[in-house]
Protein backbone atom coordinates (compact mmCIF):
# COMPACT_ATOMS: atom_id res chain seq x y z
CA UNK A 1 0.00 0.00 0.00
CA UNK A 2 1.29 3.44 -0.90
CA UNK A 3 0.15 6.56 0.87
CA UNK A 4 -1.56 9.61 -0.51
CA UNK A 5 -0.73 13.01 0.95
CA UNK A 6 -3.88 12.91 3.10
CA UNK A 7 -2.93 9.48 4.49
CA UNK A 8 0.61 10.67 5.18
CA UNK A 9 -0.71 13.65 7.12
CA UNK A 10 -2.99 11.30 9.10
CA UNK A 11 0.01 9.15 10.05
CA UNK A 12 2.05 12.17 11.11
CA UNK A 13 -0.83 13.44 13.27
CA UNK A 14 -1.21 9.94 14.78
CA UNK A 15 2.49 9.93 15.66
CA UNK A 16 2.23 13.39 17.24
CA UNK A 17 -0.85 12.39 19.24
CA UNK A 18 0.80 9.18 20.50
CA UNK A 19 3.97 11.07 21.45
CA UNK A 20 1.88 13.31 23.68
CA UNK A 21 -0.05 10.47 25.40
CA UNK A 22 2.17 10.11 28.55
CA UNK A 23 2.28 13.90 28.92
CA UNK A 24 -1.50 14.05 28.54
CA UNK A 25 -1.98 11.27 31.08
CA UNK A 26 0.32 13.09 33.52
CA UNK A 27 -1.70 16.29 33.15
CA UNK A 28 -5.10 14.59 33.52
CA UNK A 29 -7.19 14.45 36.67
CA UNK A 30 -6.14 16.04 39.95
CA UNK A 31 -2.74 17.73 39.81
CA UNK A 32 -0.17 18.77 42.42
CA UNK A 33 0.59 22.52 42.79
CA UNK A 34 2.50 24.00 39.83
CA UNK A 35 6.20 24.91 40.02
CA UNK A 36 8.64 27.16 38.12
CA UNK A 37 8.53 27.01 34.32
CA UNK A 38 12.05 25.51 34.18
CA UNK A 39 11.13 22.68 36.52
CA UNK A 40 7.83 21.93 34.77
CA UNK A 41 9.46 22.10 31.33
CA UNK A 42 12.15 19.69 32.53
CA UNK A 43 9.44 17.27 33.67
CA UNK A 44 7.56 17.58 30.36
CA UNK A 45 10.77 16.80 28.46
CA UNK A 46 11.04 13.61 30.49
CA UNK A 47 7.50 12.53 29.61
CA UNK A 48 8.15 13.35 25.98
CA UNK A 49 11.45 11.44 26.01
CA UNK A 50 9.79 8.30 27.35
CA UNK A 51 6.98 8.57 24.78
CA UNK A 52 9.29 9.16 21.82
CA UNK A 53 11.52 6.26 22.88
CA UNK A 54 8.49 3.99 23.19
CA UNK A 55 7.28 5.00 19.73
CA UNK A 56 10.68 4.08 18.30
CA UNK A 57 9.67 0.44 18.88
CA UNK A 58 6.72 0.89 16.51
CA UNK A 59 8.65 2.80 13.85
CA UNK A 60 11.52 0.32 13.60
CA UNK A 61 9.53 -2.85 14.25
CA UNK A 62 8.65 -3.55 10.58
CA UNK A 63 4.93 -3.54 11.26
CA UNK A 64 2.89 -3.38 8.10
CA UNK A 65 0.11 -1.66 10.06
CA UNK A 66 2.30 1.32 11.00
CA UNK A 67 3.56 3.67 8.33
CA UNK A 68 4.42 0.96 5.79
CA UNK A 69 3.27 3.19 2.95
CA UNK A 70 6.16 5.57 3.61
CA UNK A 71 8.67 2.85 2.72
CA UNK A 72 10.78 1.18 5.38
CA UNK A 73 13.98 2.94 4.31
CA UNK A 74 12.28 6.29 4.92
CA UNK A 75 10.94 5.04 8.23
CA UNK A 76 14.43 3.95 9.28
CA UNK A 77 15.84 7.36 8.36
CA UNK A 78 13.08 8.93 10.44
CA UNK A 79 13.81 6.42 13.26
CA UNK A 80 17.46 7.49 13.30
CA UNK A 81 16.68 11.20 13.51
CA UNK A 82 13.94 10.77 16.09
CA UNK A 83 16.41 8.63 18.09
CA UNK A 84 18.76 11.62 18.27
CA UNK A 85 15.80 13.76 19.38
CA UNK A 86 15.01 11.19 22.10
CA UNK A 87 18.62 11.35 23.29
CA UNK A 88 18.41 15.16 23.50
CA UNK A 89 15.12 14.91 25.44
CA UNK A 90 16.42 12.34 27.91
CA UNK A 91 19.60 14.35 28.56
CA UNK A 92 17.76 17.68 28.64
CA UNK A 93 15.26 16.34 31.19
CA UNK A 94 17.67 16.25 34.20
CA UNK A 95 19.76 19.15 32.82
CA UNK A 96 16.74 21.45 32.71
CA UNK A 97 15.55 20.38 36.16
CA UNK A 98 18.99 20.91 37.73
CA UNK A 99 19.44 24.25 35.95
CA UNK A 100 16.04 25.41 37.25
CA UNK A 101 16.62 24.11 40.76
CA UNK A 102 19.97 22.56 41.79
CA UNK A 103 18.20 20.50 44.46
CA UNK A 104 17.32 18.01 41.69
CA UNK A 105 20.95 16.90 41.51
CA UNK A 106 20.09 14.79 44.54
CA UNK A 107 18.10 12.51 42.19
CA UNK A 108 21.45 11.17 40.99
CA UNK A 109 22.69 10.65 44.57
CA UNK A 110 22.39 6.99 45.66
CA UNK A 111 22.68 8.06 49.33
CA UNK A 112 19.38 9.92 48.97
CA UNK A 113 17.47 7.15 47.19
CA UNK A 114 19.51 4.30 45.73
CA UNK A 115 16.90 2.71 43.36
CA UNK A 116 15.90 6.14 41.99
CA UNK A 117 19.52 7.19 41.42
CA UNK A 118 20.47 3.85 39.83
CA UNK A 119 17.52 3.81 37.40
CA UNK A 120 18.15 7.43 36.42
CA UNK A 121 21.86 6.77 35.82
CA UNK A 122 21.15 3.57 33.87
CA UNK A 123 18.66 5.33 31.59
CA UNK A 124 21.05 8.24 30.98
CA UNK A 125 24.07 6.06 30.24
CA UNK A 126 21.94 3.55 28.32
CA UNK A 127 20.55 6.05 25.82
CA UNK A 128 23.98 7.58 25.18
CA UNK A 129 25.34 4.08 24.41
CA UNK A 130 22.23 3.23 22.33
CA UNK A 131 22.51 6.27 20.07
CA UNK A 132 26.32 6.30 19.86
CA UNK A 133 26.55 2.62 18.87
CA UNK A 134 23.82 3.13 16.25
CA UNK A 135 25.39 6.20 14.65
CA UNK A 136 28.98 4.92 14.80
CA UNK A 137 28.64 1.12 14.85
CA UNK A 138 31.66 0.60 12.64
CA UNK A 139 33.82 2.99 14.69
CA UNK A 140 33.05 0.87 17.78
CA UNK A 141 33.95 -2.24 15.72
CA UNK A 142 30.59 -3.81 16.51
CA UNK A 143 29.38 -6.54 14.19
CA UNK A 144 25.86 -6.02 12.83
CA UNK A 145 24.64 -8.98 14.90
CA UNK A 146 26.20 -7.74 18.17
CA UNK A 147 24.82 -4.25 17.54
CA UNK A 148 21.34 -5.63 16.83
CA UNK A 149 21.34 -7.64 20.07
CA UNK A 150 22.64 -4.62 22.03
CA UNK A 151 20.07 -2.33 20.39
CA UNK A 152 17.17 -4.57 21.46
CA UNK A 153 18.42 -5.07 25.03
CA UNK A 154 19.20 -1.37 25.56
CA UNK A 155 15.81 -0.32 24.14
CA UNK A 156 13.95 -2.66 26.49
CA UNK A 157 16.15 -1.63 29.45
CA UNK A 158 15.81 2.11 28.89
CA UNK A 159 12.02 1.98 28.53
CA UNK A 160 11.70 -0.34 31.55
CA UNK A 161 13.92 1.79 33.80
CA UNK A 162 12.37 4.97 32.38
CA UNK A 163 8.96 3.68 33.49
CA UNK A 164 10.48 2.79 36.88
CA UNK A 165 11.78 6.35 37.17
CA UNK A 166 8.34 7.85 36.42
CA UNK A 167 6.67 5.56 38.98
CA UNK A 168 9.33 6.20 41.64
CA UNK A 169 9.35 9.98 41.25
CA UNK A 170 5.53 9.86 41.29
CA UNK A 171 4.95 13.60 40.94
CA UNK A 172 2.26 13.22 38.29
CA UNK A 173 1.43 9.55 38.99
CA UNK A 174 -1.63 9.86 41.21
CA UNK A 175 -4.31 8.49 41.13
CA UNK A 176 -3.40 4.88 40.40
CA UNK A 177 -5.00 4.76 36.92
CA UNK A 178 -2.30 7.15 35.69
CA UNK A 179 0.43 4.73 36.71
CA UNK A 180 -1.54 1.94 35.02
CA UNK A 181 -1.71 4.06 31.83
CA UNK A 182 2.09 4.63 31.91
CA UNK A 183 2.63 0.87 32.36
CA UNK A 184 0.23 0.12 29.50
CA UNK A 185 1.87 2.59 27.11
CA UNK A 186 5.45 1.53 27.77
CA UNK A 187 4.45 -2.14 28.16
CA UNK A 188 2.92 -2.09 24.67
CA UNK A 189 6.18 -0.66 23.30
CA UNK A 190 8.25 -3.32 25.07
CA UNK A 191 5.94 -6.04 23.75
CA UNK A 192 6.54 -4.81 20.20
CA UNK A 193 10.29 -5.36 20.67
CA UNK A 194 9.64 -8.86 22.00
CA UNK A 195 7.21 -9.47 19.11
CA UNK A 196 9.74 -8.57 16.42
CA UNK A 197 12.62 -10.41 18.09
CA UNK A 198 10.86 -13.52 19.43
CA UNK A 199 7.25 -13.96 18.25
CA UNK A 200 7.94 -13.17 14.59
CA UNK A 201 10.88 -15.63 14.24
CA UNK A 202 8.74 -18.23 16.01
CA UNK A 203 6.00 -17.70 13.40
CA UNK A 204 8.64 -17.93 10.63
CA UNK A 205 9.60 -21.37 11.94
CA UNK A 206 6.43 -22.74 10.34
CA UNK A 207 7.54 -21.55 6.89
CA UNK A 208 11.06 -22.77 6.18
CA UNK A 209 12.91 -22.29 2.89
CA UNK A 210 15.92 -24.03 1.45
CA UNK A 211 18.59 -22.75 -0.90
CA UNK A 212 18.43 -24.81 -4.09
CA UNK A 213 20.96 -22.92 -6.20
CA UNK A 214 23.87 -20.52 -5.66
CA UNK A 215 24.72 -18.71 -8.90
CA UNK A 216 27.67 -16.41 -9.55
CA UNK A 217 26.82 -13.10 -11.21
CA UNK A 218 29.02 -10.30 -12.58
CA UNK A 219 30.28 -7.48 -10.33
CA UNK A 220 30.97 -9.75 -7.31
CA UNK A 221 27.29 -10.57 -6.96
CA UNK A 222 25.69 -13.90 -6.14
CA UNK A 223 22.13 -15.06 -6.77
CA UNK A 224 20.51 -17.31 -4.18
CA UNK A 225 17.51 -19.31 -5.40
CA UNK A 226 15.24 -20.32 -2.52
CA UNK A 227 12.37 -22.77 -2.51
CA UNK A 228 9.60 -23.02 0.11
CA UNK A 229 9.56 -26.27 2.08
CA UNK A 230 6.12 -27.66 2.88
CA UNK A 231 4.20 -24.44 2.22
CA UNK A 232 3.15 -22.48 -0.87
CA UNK A 233 5.73 -19.71 -0.34
CA UNK A 234 5.55 -15.97 -0.11
CA UNK A 235 3.15 -13.76 -2.04
CA UNK A 236 5.01 -10.62 -2.93
CA UNK A 237 4.73 -7.76 -5.38
CA UNK A 238 7.49 -7.13 -7.89
CA UNK A 239 10.01 -4.75 -6.32
CA UNK A 240 9.44 -5.60 -2.65
CA UNK A 241 12.16 -6.80 -0.26
CA UNK A 242 12.50 -9.29 2.57
CA UNK A 243 14.79 -10.12 5.49
CA UNK A 244 16.73 -13.35 5.29
CA UNK A 245 18.14 -15.46 8.11
CA UNK A 246 20.37 -18.40 7.22
CA UNK A 247 20.92 -21.56 9.24
CA UNK A 248 18.91 -24.00 11.28
CA UNK A 249 17.15 -21.47 13.51
CA UNK A 250 15.18 -18.32 12.66
CA UNK A 251 16.09 -16.97 16.14
CA UNK A 252 19.32 -15.49 14.86
CA UNK A 253 20.59 -11.95 15.17
CA UNK A 254 22.03 -12.32 11.67
CA UNK A 255 19.13 -11.05 9.59
CA UNK A 256 19.69 -8.97 6.47
CA UNK A 257 17.38 -7.12 4.07
CA UNK A 258 17.50 -7.88 0.33
CA UNK A 259 15.27 -7.00 -2.59
CA UNK A 260 13.52 -9.88 -4.28
CA UNK A 261 14.82 -10.16 -7.86
CA UNK A 262 12.39 -12.82 -9.08
CA UNK A 263 8.95 -12.31 -10.54
CA UNK A 264 5.91 -12.87 -8.27
CA UNK A 265 4.78 -15.47 -10.83
CA UNK A 266 7.85 -17.54 -9.94
CA UNK A 267 7.18 -19.75 -6.88
CA UNK A 268 10.90 -19.67 -6.10
CA UNK A 269 12.46 -16.58 -4.56
CA UNK A 270 15.66 -15.20 -6.06
CA UNK A 271 17.91 -12.78 -4.20
CA UNK A 272 20.90 -11.23 -5.94
CA UNK A 273 23.41 -10.09 -3.36
CA UNK A 274 26.51 -7.99 -4.00
CA UNK A 275 29.65 -8.47 -1.93
CA UNK A 276 29.47 -5.36 0.27
CA UNK A 277 30.44 -6.80 3.66
CA UNK A 278 31.12 -9.90 5.75
CA UNK A 279 27.68 -11.46 5.34
CA UNK A 280 27.19 -10.63 1.66
CA UNK A 281 30.71 -11.95 0.95
CA UNK A 282 29.89 -15.25 2.65
CA UNK A 283 26.78 -16.04 0.58
CA UNK A 284 28.84 -17.20 -2.42
CA UNK A 285 30.17 -20.06 -0.26
CA UNK A 286 26.72 -21.30 0.72
CA UNK A 287 25.84 -24.83 -0.29
CA UNK A 288 22.52 -25.85 -1.84
CA UNK A 289 20.38 -27.36 0.92
CA UNK A 290 21.20 -24.61 3.44
CA UNK A 291 18.04 -23.77 5.42
CA UNK A 292 16.79 -20.19 5.26
CA UNK A 293 14.03 -18.14 6.88
CA UNK A 294 12.36 -15.28 5.07
CA UNK A 295 10.53 -12.41 6.74
CA UNK A 296 8.41 -10.21 4.54
CA UNK A 297 7.56 -9.08 1.98
CA UNK A 298 8.01 -5.42 2.81
CA UNK A 299 8.12 -2.12 1.01
CA UNK A 300 6.08 0.01 -1.38
CA UNK A 301 8.59 -0.02 -4.24
CA UNK A 302 6.29 -1.73 -6.69
CA UNK A 303 4.59 -0.78 -9.94
CA UNK A 304 0.84 -0.72 -10.19
CA UNK A 305 0.32 -0.76 -14.01
CA UNK A 306 -3.20 0.64 -13.71
CA UNK A 307 -1.94 3.95 -12.29
CA UNK A 308 0.49 5.04 -15.03
CA UNK A 309 1.04 4.89 -18.77
CA UNK A 310 4.39 3.18 -18.27
CA UNK A 311 7.38 2.97 -15.97
CA UNK A 312 10.83 4.57 -15.95
CA UNK A 313 13.30 2.45 -14.01
CA UNK A 314 16.64 3.87 -12.84
CA UNK A 315 19.13 1.45 -11.32
CA UNK A 316 22.73 1.79 -10.18
CA UNK A 317 24.78 -1.42 -9.90
CA UNK A 318 23.11 -4.02 -7.72
CA UNK A 319 20.16 -1.61 -7.37
CA UNK A 320 18.92 -3.50 -10.43
CA UNK A 321 17.50 -6.29 -8.22
CA UNK A 322 14.04 -4.86 -7.36
CA UNK A 323 13.90 -3.30 -10.84
CA UNK A 324 14.61 -6.74 -12.31
CA UNK A 325 11.65 -8.12 -10.37
CA UNK A 326 9.44 -5.40 -11.88
CA UNK A 327 10.74 -6.17 -15.39
CA UNK A 328 10.42 -9.95 -14.99
CA UNK A 329 6.85 -9.51 -13.71
CA UNK A 330 5.99 -7.28 -16.70
CA UNK A 331 7.52 -9.84 -19.08
CA UNK A 332 5.68 -12.75 -17.44
CA UNK A 333 2.29 -11.04 -17.63
CA UNK A 334 3.01 -9.83 -21.21
CA UNK A 335 2.55 -6.21 -20.16
CA UNK A 336 2.16 -3.98 -23.27
CA UNK A 337 3.12 -0.80 -21.33
CA UNK A 338 6.35 1.02 -22.25
CA UNK A 339 9.27 0.51 -19.86
CA UNK A 340 12.46 2.59 -19.98
CA UNK A 341 15.45 1.29 -18.03
CA UNK A 342 18.43 3.52 -17.17
CA UNK A 343 21.12 1.21 -15.82
CA UNK A 344 24.36 2.68 -14.45
CA UNK A 345 27.50 0.58 -14.02
CA UNK A 346 31.27 0.99 -14.10
CA UNK A 347 32.18 -1.44 -16.89
CA UNK A 348 30.22 -3.54 -19.38
CA UNK A 349 31.47 -6.69 -17.63
CA UNK A 350 29.89 -5.41 -14.37
CA UNK A 351 26.37 -5.35 -15.78
CA UNK A 352 24.28 -7.86 -13.83
CA UNK A 353 21.48 -9.63 -15.79
CA UNK A 354 22.92 -8.22 -19.04
CA UNK A 355 21.85 -11.09 -21.29
CA UNK A 356 18.43 -11.50 -19.68
CA UNK A 357 17.67 -7.79 -20.08
CA UNK A 358 18.68 -7.97 -23.75
CA UNK A 359 16.43 -11.01 -24.24
CA UNK A 360 13.50 -9.21 -22.58
CA UNK A 361 13.51 -6.56 -25.27
CA UNK A 362 12.16 -9.13 -27.71
CA UNK A 363 9.15 -9.87 -25.50
CA UNK A 364 8.13 -6.46 -24.15
CA UNK A 365 8.08 -2.75 -24.89
CA UNK A 366 11.44 -2.09 -23.21
CA UNK A 367 14.04 0.58 -23.96
CA UNK A 368 17.38 0.08 -22.20
CA UNK A 369 19.90 2.87 -21.63
CA UNK A 370 23.20 1.54 -20.28
CA UNK A 371 25.44 4.20 -18.73
CA UNK A 372 29.04 3.15 -18.13
CA UNK A 373 31.65 5.20 -16.26
CA UNK A 374 34.50 3.04 -17.66
CA UNK A 375 33.17 1.94 -21.06
CA UNK A 376 35.12 -0.19 -23.55
CA UNK A 377 36.85 1.77 -26.42
CA UNK A 378 34.15 1.14 -29.03
CA UNK A 379 31.20 1.76 -26.66
CA UNK A 380 28.27 3.28 -28.61
CA UNK A 381 26.07 4.02 -25.60
CA UNK A 382 25.97 6.62 -22.82
CA UNK A 383 29.16 7.35 -20.89
CA UNK A 384 29.46 8.52 -17.28
CA UNK A 385 26.76 8.70 -14.62
CA UNK A 386 23.00 8.85 -15.13
CA UNK A 387 22.77 12.63 -15.32
CA UNK A 388 20.12 15.17 -16.25
CA UNK A 389 21.53 15.28 -19.80
CA UNK A 390 21.27 11.51 -20.19
CA UNK A 391 17.67 11.61 -18.95
CA UNK A 392 16.93 14.48 -21.38
CA UNK A 393 18.00 12.37 -24.32
CA UNK A 394 15.86 9.35 -23.46
CA UNK A 395 12.84 10.37 -21.38
CA UNK A 396 9.49 10.56 -23.21
CA UNK A 397 7.77 13.91 -23.71
CA UNK A 398 4.82 13.11 -21.44
CA UNK A 399 7.00 12.34 -18.40
CA UNK A 400 4.23 13.16 -15.92
CA UNK A 401 2.24 10.12 -17.10
CA UNK A 402 4.93 7.62 -16.05
CA UNK A 403 5.75 5.99 -12.72
CA UNK A 404 9.40 6.26 -11.63
CA UNK A 405 11.45 3.69 -9.72
CA UNK A 406 14.97 4.53 -8.59
CA UNK A 407 17.22 2.09 -6.73
CA UNK A 408 20.92 2.48 -6.10
CA UNK A 409 23.43 4.42 -4.07
CA UNK A 410 22.24 7.53 -2.25
CA UNK A 411 23.87 10.12 -4.61
CA UNK A 412 22.05 8.55 -7.59
CA UNK A 413 18.75 8.63 -5.73
CA UNK A 414 19.17 12.25 -4.68
CA UNK A 415 20.26 13.39 -8.13
CA UNK A 416 17.52 11.64 -10.10
CA UNK A 417 14.75 12.39 -7.62
CA UNK A 418 15.59 16.10 -7.51
CA UNK A 419 15.82 16.22 -11.30
CA UNK A 420 12.44 14.52 -11.73
CA UNK A 421 10.80 16.84 -9.21
CA UNK A 422 12.31 19.83 -11.08
CA UNK A 423 10.77 18.48 -14.30
CA UNK A 424 7.35 18.53 -12.66
CA UNK A 425 6.94 14.81 -11.94
CA UNK A 426 4.56 14.48 -8.95
CA UNK A 427 6.30 13.21 -5.77
CA UNK A 428 3.72 10.42 -5.52
CA UNK A 429 4.92 9.02 -8.87
CA UNK A 430 8.55 8.72 -7.68
CA UNK A 431 9.51 5.56 -5.79
CA UNK A 432 12.95 5.11 -4.29
CA UNK A 433 14.70 2.25 -2.55
CA UNK A 434 18.01 2.56 -0.77
CA UNK A 435 19.96 -0.65 -0.39
CA UNK A 436 22.28 0.71 2.30
CA UNK A 437 19.56 1.24 4.88
CA UNK A 438 21.15 -0.86 7.66
Amino acid sequence: MKYSLAQSICWILTFLALALVPLGVGMAGSLPPGRDFGVEFGVMLGFLGLAVLSLQCVISGRFNWFGAGFGFDNLLEFHKLIGIFALILVLAHPAMLIAANPVFIAYFDPRENAPRAITLSLVTIGIVVLVATSLWRKFFKLSYEAWRALHGVLTLGIIFFGLGHVVMVDHYGEPLWKKAAFVLFTGAAMYLVVHSRVVRPWLMKRKPYTIIEVREEPNNATTLVLEPVGHPGMKHRAGQFLWITLGKSPFSMQQHPYSIASSPQNPKIELTIKDLGDFSRSVRDLAPGTPAWLEGPYGCFYHDPGTAKGAVLVAGGVGITPVMSILRAARDRRDPQPYILFFGNTAWTDVIFREEIEAMRAHMNLKVVHCLTAPPPDWPGEQGYITKDVMDRHLPNDIENYAYFICGPRPLLDLVEQDLRARGVPAASIHTERFDMV
Binding site: A19, L81, D414, E417, I430, T432
Partner: peptide
Amino acid sequence: MLHLYSRYLALAISMILLIASAVVAAWRSI
Protein backbone atom coordinates in the same frame (compact mmCIF):
# COMPACT_ATOMS: atom_id res chain seq x y z
CA MET B 1 9.17 9.76 -2.40
CA LEU B 2 9.79 10.85 1.17
CA HIS B 3 13.44 10.12 1.58
CA LEU B 4 14.46 13.69 0.81
CA TYR B 5 11.99 14.96 3.36
CA SER B 6 12.52 12.48 6.23
CA ARG B 7 14.97 14.74 8.07
CA TYR B 8 12.74 17.80 7.71
CA LEU B 9 9.75 15.81 8.89
CA ALA B 10 11.68 14.57 11.95
CA LEU B 11 12.82 18.11 12.70
CA ALA B 12 9.30 19.54 12.31
CA ILE B 13 7.79 16.83 14.53
CA SER B 14 10.49 17.40 17.16
CA MET B 15 9.82 21.14 17.17
CA ILE B 16 6.04 20.67 17.44
CA LEU B 17 6.50 18.28 20.39
CA LEU B 18 8.94 20.65 22.11
CA ILE B 19 6.56 23.58 21.70
CA ALA B 20 3.66 21.48 23.02
CA SER B 21 5.70 20.56 26.14
CA ALA B 22 6.72 24.17 26.66
CA VAL B 23 3.08 25.27 26.42
CA VAL B 24 2.01 22.65 29.00
CA ALA B 25 4.93 23.67 31.26
CA ALA B 26 3.95 27.33 30.94
CA TRP B 27 0.36 26.45 31.85
CA ARG B 28 1.56 24.47 34.91
CA SER B 29 3.78 27.32 36.07
CA ILE B 30 1.07 30.01 36.01
